[in-house]
Computed example of a mutant assay.
Amino acid sequence: MTALDALPPSDGRPELVVLRAIKLGDLLVAVPALRALRRAFPDHRISLATTAWLAPVVALVPAVDVHLAQQGFDHPIGVPAGVTDVAVNLHGAGPESEDLVAALGARRTIHHGEGGPSWEDGPVNERERWVRLLRAYDIPADADDVAIDRPAEPPVVDGAAVVHVGAFHGARHWPVDRFAEVVRGLRERGHDVVLTGGAADVARAAAVADAAGLPPEAVLAGVLDLQPFAAVVAAARVVVTVDTGAAHLASAYGIPSVVLFGPAPPEAWGPPASGPHVVLTDASVRRGDVFSEEPDPAILAVHPVDVLAAVDGLGVVPAGSGAGASPDAAGARAAASVDQ
């Protein structure tokens, strides 16, 4: 799927336009709402206005028919006024997003505020926030309905332990030496380990590999586009990551994960409690500055022994051993692990 600047010619279906223009994790927490909209409006063409570089992952969201490139709020959504049947604001409740949605001139608008539910402040689970919005308009939705399609191309690595070392801001960075200790522990348990991250994380991943004794070919940071990255996560035995899009991909594919939280509250951004996921953080020391370049004390309170114990608790075993993680045991632990 290609991100388009403007709505393509009508295919005869009524138009439903959704605004959600942020990053990978933000897109993935909106998947339950998008899937609910697909069920509620099966005869509509659904267009998602979101960030252009997310196109490879938008293509994996079966609820979306058209991807409209929306780079922030400095330009209107690429849909002529008056052609939209239903407009949905899954972005926020501020004047910037509300004005963009209002400019569509839709016959029906689903949003917070006037005519809809009030915006909830505080640490509200983001998946739940958007399904609650739909429920207020009598649209059934399930916050745990997080699945997206797997990429058609096979993964470059199958059955690995994926350790994602990157994050957009330093507040979510976990020390290189701690990542290296986790990698060594995973390898001692028999796992093949690969390191992932974005283009800005190449040096960081190389440092982790060097400290852990991993070969250069195990460093996939800066190598994979979004779909190949999603394919590696979908085929992983376990994912160890800070609070990033990698964690949300693991949730979308039901892959056991250990997620380290720093400035952001896991109550808002954490994985589904029903899945094979463990969250590690210490809320009592959280500073909460998500844009800081210094690691948040909440993530520094997590140590390699905690991560490896969480992997063991999930029941994850190496590929080729003939067994997998125990979902029942994992799910039971996940909800209780938020403040470890």
Rank of each mutant, 00 (worst) to 15 (best):
N125L: 13
V79E: 06
S337K: 01
G313A: 14
T281K: 01
D144G: 12
A207W: 05
I22T: 14
L300W: 08
Y137L: 04
W53C: 02
A247W: 03
P32Y: 08
A141T: 10
V29F: 13
A273F: 11
G78N: 10
G315K: 07
T51L: 11
A106N: 13
I299R: 01
T241M: 11
D328T: 14
P265A: 10
L16R: 05
V101R: 01
P80K: 09
H44G: 02
R189T: 03
D210N: 07
D65S: 09
D5C: 02
I110M: 08
L16F: 08
V285N: 13
A250H: 05
V101H: 03
V61C: 15
S97C: 15
G275T: 04
V57F: 05
R127C: 08
L28M: 13
V124H: 09
V146H: 07
G331T: 14
T281S: 15
S274W: 03
N125G: 13
P304D: 03
N125T: 02
A268V: 06
A69P: 01
A49S: 12
D142C: 06
D121C: 00
D289V: 12
A236I: 08
M1W: 06
N89H: 11
S274Y: 06
V259C: 06
G92I: 03
G116S: 08
A180V: 09
D225Y: 03
G25R: 02
A52P: 15
V58K: 05
R178E: 13
I139Q: 07
V165R: 00
L186H: 07
Q227E: 15
V240Q: 07
G197F: 09
L4Q: 15
G12I: 07
G82K: 06
G222N: 09
A250N: 08
P297M: 10
D289C: 07
G25E: 04
A323W: 07
L7A: 14
Q70G: 00
G113Y: 12
G198C: 10
S274K: 04
W269V: 00
G331M: 03
L48D: 03
A330W: 05
D5F: 04
F179S: 00
A63Q: 04
G166K: 00
L16N: 06
P117F: 09
A298L: 07
R150F: 04
D43R: 14
G122D: 09
L100H: 08
V194C: 05
T51S: 15
A273C: 04
A207V: 04
G288C: 13
V285T: 14
V183L: 06
A234S: 15
D99V: 09
P42G: 11
